[in-house]
Amino acid sequence: MTRRNRFGGDSADDANSAGSANAAGNAKSAGDADSTAASARGQTGRSPFSAMHTGPGRALTAVYGVFALSATARAGYQLIREFDVAPIAYSLSAFAAVIYILATVCLVIGNRVSHRIAVAACAIEFLGVIVVGILSHTHPEDFAKPSVWSNFGSGYGYIPLLLPLIGLWWLLRVGRRASRG
């Protein structure tokens, strides 16, 4: 019973439907790709830049959301209870949490501007994890307490190192597809 789609349809990934929407959008002028793709799907307010059209994109957004939530909760605790212990590390935690929230929101909105903001957010995340990772080895006294980005994100299973790369790869893929034609 549970093998089937709950709504009686096939369980195929819906990447195809998004692909055809973009193909329809590309057939017309690229001037207003947003509205053509939206009308091709019979929907309004959707843009080809949004990660929400395809299953893997939604999964990526969900993982970003989970990470944003847990990073925010941890940073909130650190700021409230023990900010004085390691102000640099904990300020970075808070900054990282804000960037993760920003990336999540921009992945969902998916217009041209939010796409650029999401790319910038992912790039900052990647730079942050690399720079803080190096600094936490060269200046361990400033990073006595763990932040999300310390030791290349080892405290979080290296997810902070991998997530921005996956995010950037996805954003560039979606951007290329949306601007083609």
Partner: peptide
């Protein structure tokens, strides 16, 4: 709770994928 709701709304393989990540 969020992952469960997400998996309910998602109709592709990525519903369980999100549940696994959560």
């Amino acid at each position: 709770a969020l992952a469960g709701f997400w998996a309910f709304a998602e109709l592709s393989r990525w519903g369980p994928g999100v549940l696994a990540a959560a």
